[in-house]
Design a protein around this nucleic acid. Sequence first.
DNA 1: GAAAATGCGGAAAGCGCATTCCGGAATGGG
DNA 2: CCCATTCCGGAATGCGCTTTCCGCATTTTC
Lengths: 350, 350
Amino acid sequence: MPASTLYEVARHAGVSLATASRVLNGSSRRPGDAISERVRASAVELGYIANAQAQGLAKKNSGMLGLILHDIADPYFSTIARGVQEAVQDQQKVVLLASTGGGPASEHRAVAAFAARRADAIVIAGTRFNAPEAAQENELLLAELRRYRTNGGKVAVIGQPLVGSVAEDGFRTVPVPNRELSLRLAADLAGAGHHRFLILAGPEGLLTSDERVAGFQEGLRQAGLEPAEVRRTGFNRDGGYEAAVALAGELAGGPGGRPAVCVFAASDVMAIGAIAGLREHALRIPEDVAVAGFDDIETLRDFTPALTTAQLPLSSLGSEAVALVLAEDSSTEPYVAEGHVILRRSTDVS
Amino acid sequence: MPASTLYEVARHAGVSLATASRVLNGSSRRPGDAISERVRASAVELGYIANAQAQGLAKKNSGMLGLILHDIADPYFSTIARGVQEAVQDQQKVVLLASTGGGPASEHRAVAAFAARRADAIVIAGTRFNAPEAAQENELLLAELRRYRTNGGKVAVIGQPLVGSVAEDGFRTVPVPNRELSLRLAADLAGAGHHRFLILAGPEGLLTSDERVAGFQEGLRQAGLEPAEVRRTGFNRDGGYEAAVALAGELAGGPGGRPAVCVFAASDVMAIGAIAGLREHALRIPEDVAVAGFDDIETLRDFTPALTTAQLPLSSLGSEAVALVLAEDSSTEPYVAEGHVILRRSTDVS
DNA sequence: GAAAATGCGGAAAGCGCATTCCGGAATGGG
DNA sequence: CCCATTCCGGAATGCGCTTTCCGCATTTTC
């Protein structure tokens, strides 16, 4: 039994299609009260549910917002998703989710899928990867987004602008203060007495990671310290783990200043992996090795030792992206994410 | 500049609308090779992207699957979402996300929104709450889902059947082995030497929590032990924390057997909160108090002390729900989730 | 070789709704 | 009391696509 249509409601109420449309689904013209009531009653009686697809076809918008991210199960992204969800809900819209897992290769496919569905806007939160091996995918993603935009779609990017995009593209960006925060983190750690650092980063070209590394190094420089060694590994838990295992091996025979070194992992998840790796090799945090992360993932706040990190307002990032992309005038006050460094026990100097 | 339409592609290729439709968007009839190639070339040249809304209107399906869950930022749900996402991607569909935050009140609204969008199927993963105060919302949710189903939608529920639903409703269920696993968990803990237990559960009526409690008690019974005391609190991190703080207060003056008690928190997240609370009051895990959780949340696997828990294949739960709801014949082999108990250090008996 | 079967492209009828354009009724002004 | 406005409901058009239904050109069959 198919859903009842507007036409049926109209007939049941003894009015025309146009009138029924006007009363049930907002319009600039509002029919008289008596008629309106009759139509509404019929709609309820017949269990009418507007067909958004048909509405979308007739009007020009679909009421859907596409959200593209790398991995919905990653707390970083899922928290952003929560912010997006909340903002979208306020707007009576609905979110189309695409968790791409892979690189930009599937991102551009997600854009195409959203474009086909005529999503009103797209928010894309994946980390940009600026490296030769990703060049082609970046190109495809960019092309697809431009096409989407040409056809009237709006685009917001959380984090860094898309590789290769220019101002004329009209892609709005919600900046993430990776650089500032990691700079301050370095400053605070130096202030706390650390002076030997090691950075665990994702592969070169991964902009989020790169920015954090650069900011951290800059912070060290301002504190009058030498740049830290940077080790590239996977930008995830396992990457942190593996790098830590290697590090533990090197530290085994060392002199053993306490703590020997302060490790800055470019994300909390990496930091957790690193701690796991260090511990497996009998290194204590923070007595033997201090560890700091980045993001302040909610689920990890009860971790022991409490993790020093830089707090990012992930949820707000998501809702701001929605606000930005849905705003009519592009002249809205640019959003500046508030973040702050939180020194916790994982970097205590004994 | 609006997107080019099928009609334009057809004209550009010098064929009819029907032909263009047949070659570009699958059909039972396949036009000749020469013509097909010409149409395809035109489509590429014009940058044609099919309008899924129009397709959905003409055909009867939208290619969208609705996913409803409580909180996308909760690792339990976001992991399920990942599974759903993966399965849906294989089917060339797209997922509509609704993170309801609140109770069934907003769940039924999400169903309505999905129904309006003509989602082909809905997967709902929120925990069922069977309590008087939720009766009305449950009723509304059920009504909305029935209407959706009557109109041809498919529905799958992860976890427990909807409160009040009957077999005729045709809502498929992906069972979660809460009972069996918590039973085995209790058995294993008893086997490890624990004999004094305390259960931290969510509010009565929250079925997921209730099942885990019941299973655990049954496990204790089979092990020849007394039922454990059950404390109701929030089914989240803070609930675990608060209950633990209270417990710590009681234990302060006690005799101090080691460990004094084994706490079973009905979810990992609660368990983490509980551990945080206990620690704040100088209780050591597991020396003073043993703690076990449930779910085996990925992000928490590196927690220290490693958390004893019951592993749930959350991601598979999601993909199975999709498979189930998209399956034509309802006679498919019922999916039985494989889970297992993992004893880790948090419940070690010293 | 004629008749029936097959294949294939095109015209046209919707799918469910928003919206423009009309015409008639109610209203206000002179 | 009549004419110019304003208001409001209805008919009709179109959004972009799928899909029957047709008609014509090839093949196949006896």
